[in-house]
Design a protein around this nucleic acid. Structure first.
Lengths: 363, 363
DNA sequence: CGGGAGCAGTGGAACGATCCAACAGTAGAC
DNA sequence: GTCTACTGTTGGATCGTTCCACTGCTCCCG
């Protein structure tokens, strides 16, 4: 109703014709503004700062938006605000056989968590030989607002690179011993997980509990191992000679388990991954030893394999849904340039008990 | 060098200053043009139509681009060209236990294939109750160039919706019996896969080979089953009474296998999924029957579970890398509005033989 | 009654790329 | 010598949004 005076330069009548409908018939801000009898800015405010509008104007604009099925053009918005609402994640080429099933669950959770704050996930790939490939280009072209970095094993340069570059990112994985690192991170407490596993086996009456982990260079494995070791010591069991290091591979674990089982006093295994635990199960099958009933086995990651393997593999489960939520929360703080109240956040894993560690179980 | 006359209203001298450096110090097209002593359009041509430039100009511009580390701003380009170089994929919430490990391998392949043509993958999620949620919004806001649709089981409305909407997309999965469908698709020949599996077991000397599949409503299962049935008939074996339908679940398969094995003449199983095959392995373990040596088992999808399960599960492997490549190729044709030379493309699976089907094997 | 504050809303400019029409310069044809 | 064709390059306009400075208008206070 409130028809205000509309000033017009009036020099050249048909030169500057405000385009009111996009080329393909897609409505734009101008379409909505025209239809609702307000200016473009008012429509923009209706979307981004609704509290600035008088309630009745807001309702009117919103109903036009609804009726026309208008959504703001992402490219235009991105160009103006310099924010794409996209989060980049480099998706490494899969290595078959290893437990990247973890990735699947994590990815789902991340997509969902991000979408709750209006963000989408942009997957990209890069030259496997160059762990930094792809990042630079997305940064320069301002295609993403931030990155999520997933592999922060010792020696991976992504976090350092992005930090030096001044690019916003959050890491899934603590920076371990890099003293220069001061970026946001979220991680799961591997030591606590291994401790859970070990204490569970101790509860089942096991004493001499072996550890199967990765090479010494893996900080993740060292971390988990420390939980096993501490739990054993607290129970008065000497862990010396019970720890084995090998590559993350079913067959390597199978053979290692055979060697360990030569020592008849060993009655249980805690493993740094489900892959290794599955290898132990293979060895038990070959020795015709009942998992659970005779020898307890616990894996790590609660992968799909753990869930379907016979007779059911007890495993430490990472709270990936919660990790995703925390990552997104962190991302928001980083992007909002808010003071980072805490640099990192450590989450607690849980133990999913299945029959491979249930002593009472008989097939 | 070329100082041309610069028209200026003259009222306020410093109003129209052509910004040559982005706010954050990020170089823009204008920066490069200025530095190379050419116009913006020439730089743009150097990137998009290099053949239009004189070779020496091209080299000069390229060296400046290299030196400044310039990449065109994606938002600006997207706004002007109406193309985001993003491909949307709705990433469904994971259902634990089912074989979406397939998805992991597929996703990797797709990201890689897409990146080879300069496209990135945009993952989004939506209300699980509404299979169309999310698509509309991305279309309206012109956030993606196209979609990849992965679940085209009977009754899923995505393909129909996008087709009616006139949105570009490619489906992984044939349109089955929808006569209205005329969109591009890529699929794997399930019947051929089941035939491979069945013939392999026949070669191993098995005759009465059972089928474990999903409910009758699943077209995918029906398709695979038809391959098993045909192979059996050609070998002169009557498949009647050898087929079982159940839900895709380890325990359901385990119990079904027990029932089937009451009939002592059955010596092998072909399954519509690895999940079902793992269930059969569980049943065999409970009966203390050797997989492979006594009863042959073949699964479908070559999931991580198949690869680590003891004693190794023979499985039909889908050529997902090739699927991804074909999908991207199709997408290109669809986006380029080229005449679609073929509407769909059917790829052949392969059989990965492991010990669960090797008759000679002894533990 | 004049003036500062606050409110709802306006029009122009800007983001950084590409599209477009036009331009200078050269060569070839008449 | 002029006209046409062609090549390489140019400046201006444009895509759709948000930022910015500003305008009427009302209200309140001294």
């Amino acid at each position: 109703m409130s028809s205000t005076s509309r000033s017009s330069a009036g020099r050249e009548p048909s030169r500057r014709r405000p385009r009111v409908l996009g080329g393909d018939g897609v409505p734009t801000l101008a379409t909505v503004a025209d239809e609702a009898g307000v200016s473009r800015q008012t429509v923009s405010n209706a979307l981004n700062n609704p509290e600035l509008l008088r309630p009745e104007t807001l309702v009117r604009v919103q109903s036009v938006i609804e009726r026309l099925g208008y959504s703001p053009n992402r490219a235009a918005r991105q160009l103006r605000t310099r924010s794409s609402h996209l989060v980049g994640l480099r998706f490494e080429p899969a290595q078959e056989g290893t437990s990247n099933a973890l990735m699947d669950r994590f990815l789902h959770s991340l997509v969902e968590a991000a979408s709750r704050t209006g963000h989408h996930l942009l997957l990209f790939s890069g030259d496997p030989a160059d762990p930094l490939d792809g990042y630079e280009d997305l940064l320069r072209s301002t295609a993403v607002d931030a990155f999520v970095v997933t592999d922060t094993y010792a020696g991976t340069p992504q976090a350092g690179f992005l930090q030096d570059r001044g690019a916003p990112f959050v890491a899934f994985g603590r920076p371990w011993d890099d003293p220069r690192a001061d970026h946001a991170w979220v991680d799961v407490d591997g030591a606590a997980g291994a401790r859970l596993a070990t204490e569970h086996l101790l509860d089942q009456g096991h004493r001499r509990i072996a550890w199967l982990g990765w090479e010494r260079s893996s900080r993740i494995s060292q971390d988990r191992r420390s939980g096993w070791e501490a739990a054993l010591r607290e129970a008065g069991v000497d862990p010396v000679g019970l720890g084995v290091r090998l590559t993350d591979n079913v067959d390597a674990a199978r053979m290692a388990a055979h060697r360990v089982l030569e020592d008849a006093t060993v009655t249980a295994f805690v493993c740094a991954s489900d892959t290794l635990a599955v290898g132990v199960l293979h060895a038990l099958a070959e020795r015709r030893v009942q998992p659970g009933a005779q020898v307890g086995v616990v894996g790590f990651d609660d992968s799909a394999a753990a869930q379907v393997t016979w007779p059911g593999l007890t495993s430490v489960r990472q709270p990936l849904e919660q990790v995703a939520v925390e990552l997104v929360r962190s991302l928001h703080r980083v992007l909002g340039h808010q003071p980072v109240e805490e640099q990192g956040r450590m989450l607690e894993p849980t133990l999913v008990v299945r029959r491979s560690s249930e002593r009472g179980w008989k097939p």
